Every structure is written in C-alpha cells, then in structure tokens.
Simulated scan of single mutants.
Amino acid sequence: MPPTPSSVSRTSRIQGALLGAFIGDALALGPHWYYDLDALKRDYGDWVSDYAAPKPGRYHGGLPAGASSQAGFILALTTRSLVDCGGYDEADFCARMDRELFPLLDGTPMAGPGGYTSQSIREAWRKRRAGLPWGQVAGLADNTEAAERVLAIALRYADEPAQLARHVSSNVALTQRDPTVGAMTLAFAAVLGQLVNGVALDGDLSGRLMGMVKSGELPFHTVTSGELDVPQGAEAPLQAGQFASPDALLTVSSIARAAHDPAVAIEPASKVGLVYGLPCAVYHQFPAAYYLAARFQGDMEQGVLNAVNAGGQNQARAMLAGALCGALGGLEAIPARFIAGLEKGEEYLALAKAVAERVG
C-alpha cells in the first residue's frame, strides 16, 4: 500500500514523479504499440508485471529489458540540463539536443537511441539539418512527445506556477506548434506541479487551476467567472501567448470525479485504453493518465501496470501516469524491483534527487 498523502514530503514526491516517468517508459519498452490486444497477450501473457525485452521485429528491437526508449533519453537530457544550469536554460537545452541527440538520428522512424524516433523529433531534426534555427523547427504532430520531457521542468518549478507555465510553454513550442497540444501539455504540467506540492487529485483541482488563470499565473483566456458561472462585465481581450480556452485545465477534475463515481466503471482498469483511445494523440493520452492516477492515486505499481497493459501507445500513457502516481505516492511508493531493474536507475535516482534539491 502507498503511504498516506500527509506523510509524503515534497522532496519524495518530486523524486517519485521523475522516477515514475522513467519507470513507466521502460516498463512499456517491450510490449509497446500493440494495437491488437490479443497479440499483446500472445507475446507477453495475460499481464505484464515487470520489465520485458521487445520481441524481434518490434519497436525498440534489440534493447534489453529495463532500458529507456528515446522518450526516456530526452527526459534524461532535459533533466541534466536543468540540474547543470540550476534551472531551465533554453540555449543549453537546444545545444544538448544538437550535440547529444540529433547526430544519432537519420530521419527515419526506426533509428536513434531507444530504437524509435517520434514524428515531432524527426521534423525538428530535418529542419535543423536544413539550417533552420531553433524557434523555426516545430511541427504539427499531436503526440505527447513534449510532455514526456517538460514534466521535468514542471517538477523543477512546482512552487512557481508562472515560471512553470512560461518555461514549459517555451520548451513545448520548440518541437510542437499546435496550440491545442500546447494547452493540453501545459495543463498536464500544471497538474503535476500541484500534485508534488501536496494538492489532491480530485474534483476540486480544476477550480484551483482556474484560480491561477484569474490571478494571471497560468496563460489561459477565460470569459466565465468563478466556477464557470455567467460572465461579469466586459471581456478582457485575448493576449499574445495566451491559450484561447482553459478547457484543458477542466479535464482533470471531470475525470477524477468519474474515477471515484461508483456509477462509472472501467473494469478492469487496463480497459482505459479502449475507453479513451489507443493512439498517440494528446486527447487520448492525457485523459487516460489522469484516470489511472485518480483511480490508483499513489499506488504507482497499479497505475503504471494498468497503463502498460492497456496496449496501444502504452509507453506515453505509462510515463504520464507514472509521473502523476509518483507525485502522489512519492519515492517510497515505488516497488524496489522497478528501481533495481531499471537500466541507469542509479543515475536517474541521482538526477531526481538533484532536481528536488533545486526546488524552492
């Protein structure tokens, strides 16, 4: 059983969130991207419960059980930049991408560290190779690629929501320029920042986030007043850099209510992939991660394993759910076997500790 919320320190929550993301990524490495759920069971049995190597000819083929995908590689790159610079330094992040990642790519999907390169990273690689500067290489991919790295930025600035919003939005825009992707990714980062500060993942969280919109800490445009009540007075004009709607902030509490409502059942919880969708897009992935985290709270083992066994783009789902559950349960809620079996686990633990030390 995970520890009670009141017993979990912020330091432990930050470490748990970052380790949870790395663990979720690695747990899904073998059984990644099975849209045929019968084939997933044929290859890995009725329930994936630990790290497993990919089957020959599948995604990430040749990597050992417990290894990170390219998403984990980039998350580690982002985290090292945060630690070495003491905070988010965009020039340093971009230089590391140019120096440490892009030379290992060739523009094809099944290449590079981790055995697969996402669409948004391939697009950025091509444009950089063509001589375009950072700031002009983002594409329209609607995946969670940016969310998988900016979660480290959200942890670093958990106690500074305005800074979190500014740095997360800026980093997302380096590879993804769709405003809906940007809004949903920032909303996820804002939720994660609140959870590591001890705020509950429940039906009241969205109201808290909306209060940050009203105070100007989160850059979303809103017309309604209070709890989505009737507008009062003149509408403030939409400002540059604002997302046009705060709806991405409302998703998490709606799903939390559903997860706790006995009249709403997703059984087993791994069917969450069929309910919210198996593909890669943000509008499938974020709701499923919110549901699993709301349902299992700080029980990272159940949250992550249900994400993995749901199939489809289970790697992103498990990374996001792992970060949320880790933020709720803390480092002490992570099963020892998940840390012991994680390739580079000691390095990731040290990075998580260093990030936690820089918060506040």
Rank of each mutant, 00 (worst) to 15 (best):
S169M: 08
G45E: 12
A154F: 01
T79N: 02
G24L: 04
D38G: 05
L132K: 14
P109D: 14
N309I: 05
A327K: 02
G241N: 13
L218T: 08
F22M: 15
S254D: 13
P3C: 12
V355K: 06
V8W: 05
P113W: 06
C85E: 15
R13P: 01
P246T: 13
R177G: 12
D46C: 10
L349C: 07
A162K: 15
L151G: 06
L250H: 00
N197K: 11
Q297S: 09
G193A: 07
V275R: 11
A189F: 00
V196Y: 00
A307G: 07
N306K: 04
Q194C: 13
L132T: 11
M184L: 06
C94W: 05
V304M: 04
A71W: 00
A323F: 02
T117F: 00
K55L: 08
T222A: 15
K41M: 08
A124I: 09
E343K: 07
A294K: 08
M97Y: 02
S254Y: 09
A234M: 03
A310W: 00
A183M: 02
Q232V: 15
S270N: 09
C280Q: 13
T175L: 02
H32E: 09
R156Q: 07
R128M: 02
A154Y: 01
L228I: 09
Y291V: 06
C94E: 08
E123C: 11
A307K: 02
G203Q: 13
N309G: 04
D98C: 00
H260E: 13
A165D: 02
A307R: 08
A146N: 01
Q136L: 07
A71Q: 04
V150M: 05
F188W: 07
K127R: 15
T175A: 08
E90V: 10
D299W: 02
S225I: 11
A236M: 13
D43Q: 03
R58A: 05
P133D: 14
H60A: 00
H284T: 09
F93V: 11
M300D: 09
M110L: 12
V359R: 05
W47Q: 14
R126A: 14
D106G: 03
T11E: 15
A52Y: 06
Q119A: 15
G61T: 09
G360V: 15
A350P: 01
G62F: 06
A138T: 01
D299S: 08
M97I: 10
M184Q: 12
Y88F: 12
G112Q: 10
K353C: 06
R208G: 13
A289L: 05
A269K: 11
